[in-house]
Simulated scan of single mutants.
Amino acid sequence: MERRDWTRAAWCGTPEQFARVQIQSLSSYRSSEDQFAIQSRGSTSKEILDPVIRRSGNIPWPGDQFGGVQGSSEIQGNLITLLLHLCAPDVYVVKACKSTIQKVGPYLDCPEVNRMIQECLGDETDLMFTDFIKELIKRMAKDMQDLFPIFVMTNVSYLKSQWTSIRANAALVTGLFYAELLPENKPKVSLETVCDKLNRLMQDESEEVRIKASQAISCLFL
């Protein structure tokens, strides 16, 4: 796979363009994960994880020059990737995701969400992912409700992740997002599709995945 140098010193564009490219590069992470998994069975997670998220932890953020509404949209589009990889098996990825989420927090236009992110995702904090994500989603529901149908289906796309922790938490987070959908937004998500994907995880070899899939299914009918 081609490796590119996204360091600031190697970039010839504006700070705004550099930050946008960094955020856009995150969207390729899941497909890269799948490709490396196929090519590197038996390797450690550190060896097969694409380094893009680790690099993104060192984004030299350009402050108010980020790019306004368009930049915020790109951040929101990659937020689920970052959140789910807070429980990745690679500690370097987790650390980079914490750092990156803290950097993008102010651009989410949700003061309560950003406050929680800054308080809970420090390098020295021992993150309790389930408690964190439950409370975060409740806060997100107040100001980001229009994005929740997209968030639900983005989580569904991670239900086939190679890594047990991400597969399990993607299931739980799918249910939590769906449970917070307003009535007018629920028709935008295919409940049948979501149920089918979660039901398949009830046969997963991992007990953790089966338990969280069960919890997610219960959230769908709250």
Rank of each mutant, 00 (worst) to 15 (best):
I38P: 03
I38Y: 15
Q39G: 02
S40W: 12
R41V: 15
R41F: 13
G42E: 10
G42A: 06
S43W: 09
S43H: 07
T44E: 07
S45N: 09
K46P: 01
I48F: 08
L49R: 09
L49G: 01
L49M: 12
D50Q: 06
D50A: 14
V52H: 02
V52S: 05
V52G: 01
I53S: 00
I53Q: 03
R54C: 08
S56N: 11
G57I: 04
N58H: 09
N58K: 07
N58E: 11
I59H: 03
I59D: 00
W61V: 10
W61C: 09
P62S: 05
P62W: 09
G63I: 04
D64R: 15
D64M: 10
D64L: 14
Q65W: 05
G68W: 06
G68K: 08
V69F: 09
V69D: 10
Q70N: 05
G71N: 01
S72T: 14
S72V: 06
S73V: 05
G77E: 08
N78G: 10
N78V: 04
N78Y: 00
N78M: 01
L79E: 02
I80V: 15
T81G: 11
L83C: 09
L84P: 02
L86K: 02
C87D: 03
C87P: 00
A88R: 01
P89L: 01
P89Y: 00
D90T: 00
V91H: 11
Y92N: 06
Y92I: 01
V94F: 03
V94M: 03
K98L: 03
K98T: 02
K98Y: 00
S99V: 09
S99F: 06
T100F: 12
T100S: 12
K103I: 14
G105P: 07
G105E: 10
G105W: 06
P106S: 08
P106R: 11
P106T: 06
Y107M: 12
L108I: 08
L108H: 02
D109S: 13
C110F: 13
P111I: 08
P111N: 09
P111F: 05
P111M: 08
E112P: 04
N114M: 06
M116N: 09
M116A: 11
I117E: 04
I117G: 03
I117Y: 06
I117W: 02
E119T: 13
C120H: 11
D123K: 06
D123W: 04
E124W: 05
T125E: 13
T125C: 07
L127I: 13
F129N: 01
D131K: 14
F132M: 06
F132C: 03
F132I: 06
I133N: 02
K134S: 15
K134T: 13
E135R: 12
E135Q: 14
E135P: 01
E135T: 15
L136I: 10
K138T: 10
R139L: 15
R139F: 11
A141L: 05
